[in-house]
Structure formats: C-alpha cells, structure tokens
Nucleic acid binder design. Structure first.
Lengths: 124, 124
DNA sequence: GTTGACCTTCACATCAATGGTAGGGTTTAT
DNA sequence: ATAAACCCTACCATTGATGTGAAGGTCAAC
C-alpha cells in the first residue's frame, strides 16, 4: 500500500506519516521507484501511534515501546510502565498548577464582581 | 534607572525586559546615549507583568489592560473581566482534557498491574 | 589610554507535531 | 502523448517567552 492509501485509511496526513517514519515509528519498504510501501499491518500501527499521541506521549517515548506493543499486550512490555508513570506524574503536576491558577483567577473575578457591585451601590 | 538595575531589582532578565518593551508593556525613556531609562515605578510594573504572566495571560492580553491596572484597582478596568473569563474557560478545558487523559492512563496502568500480576500467578 | 562593566541592536535557537510549498520524478488513464 | 494524480526530498513556518551570542558603542576608574 502506498502512502496515500495509508493516509486515507487512517486519516493521518502524508506529512505526519513521513514524520513518524523519521522518528522511527514506521519502517515502510521502498519500491523500485522509491515510493514507500506499507503492509496492511501499518494501518493498525498508525492507529496505535495516534492513540499514544493522544495520551500525550512523545514520538520518542512511543518509539521506546511501540515495537513491543505491536506484538504483545501492554502488560508484557516492561518499557511501557515507567513511561506511563512518568506521564501520570507530569499530568498531576499540570493539573495542580492549573488548579492553582484557576483558584487565583476565580478569587480575582469574585473580588472584581464584589467591588464593582459595591461601587455601583448595588449592595447596600 | 538603567536596565541592569531594573533587572536586579525585579529578578527579570535583560532579555525579557526588552521583550516586554517590544510587546508594548514598558515604555522607558531613552538617555542621550540611547540607554533605556526606567522610572522607579517600573519595578512595580514589571512585578505586575510577571504576576499576570504567571496567571497564564499572554503579553498581548496584558497589554490590553496593564495601563489601566497600574493606575486603578482591577475592579475599575473593564477590559480585564472578559480576559479573566476567557482564561478561566480555557483552563477549565485544559483541566478537563488532562483529567480525561489521566483517567485513561490510570486505567491502563491498573490493567497492566492486574494482568502482569495474574500472569505471575500472584493472584490465585 | 586601557580594562571591564555596562549598554545597544540584530538574529538565531528552543519545543514538537504538523502544515505548506517548491522543484522534480512516476504512473495511470484518456 | 499528454494531463491528472500520484510520489519523492528538502526546506521553512507555526507558538511564545526566553536564552544566547556577536558586533559594537559608552562610561567610569585606574
């Protein structure tokens, strides 16, 4: 299958498919004329890549375990657990940071509402 | 006060001070030799800029209300409320997105723990 | 009059995945 | 044989605040 076919089947752009290859996530054969040739299996592989990208993993992290995950279940790829744990910690940090900012914002919003209301004499 | 002084007083790098000027957040005078000259007031102003940056606002957004906020209390700057509200919505979206990813990650981590434990016969 | 500590502008690099484009080769259908 | 529809590589751009460095002007102290 050529790159355009794979793109249509997966909904992933040509640009991204070539990028995934550059990052070591795909290794298509090449035909005589230099065209990339993908096995039907590549459709699954690209979907799997996208799944992990949506989890916020980098192509580098994905490259570290994709090979294993395409052959086995996640539970049998020991490379994957530390990646998940690292990512989970990162996400918890990000959520904590955003939550703090959120509280700060809400405080400010309420302070403004309160002050501008009292300024307008709306709270006698 | 020259840029080095302002940098030391605020802990903000020269690079960032010049960037803030480029973004319209600071308008120092210039001495005859072309050096930036800041009023003592600029210290407060830079601290205020940093405060808003830490809230996740962009220099462009800050530029929209900084002038007002440096003279009045936030409650009197009508430009600020929509910015806060927009930012709050963004943050809520980000938290929601991260929370969804977090749940997905935790599910996967637990699935792996479960499977690898049962594989090892640790759960009889 | 020279050293060193300032200051200036300009410009490139960062991070990461993706979009876009230019310039050129191949294949397929008419 | 030509046009349409593919494919290739190799770039540059995006985002936004900041780091870094070159090339050079200014100034104070000695």
């Amino acid at each position: 299958m050529k790159i355009g076919d794979l793109s249509k089947k997966t909904g992933v752009s040509l640009r991204s498919l070539r990028y995934y290859e550059e990052q070591g996530l795909l290794q298509p054969e090449r035909s005589e004329n230099g065209y990339r040739l993908y096995s039907p299996f590549a459709v699954d592989q690209v979907r799997t890549i996208q799944l992990y990208l949506r989890l916020g993993l980098s192509t580098e992290q994905i490259a570290g375990f994709l090979h294993c995950v395409m052959k086995n279940k996640e539970a049998f790829c020991r490379e994957i657990m530390p990646v998940y744990e690292t990512k989970l910690r990162e996400i918890d940090e990000q959520i904590a940071s955003l939550t703090a900012i959120r509280s700060n914002l809400i405080e400010r919003i309420e302070a403004i509402r309160g002050e501008s209301a009292s300024t307008k004499g709306e709270i006698p």
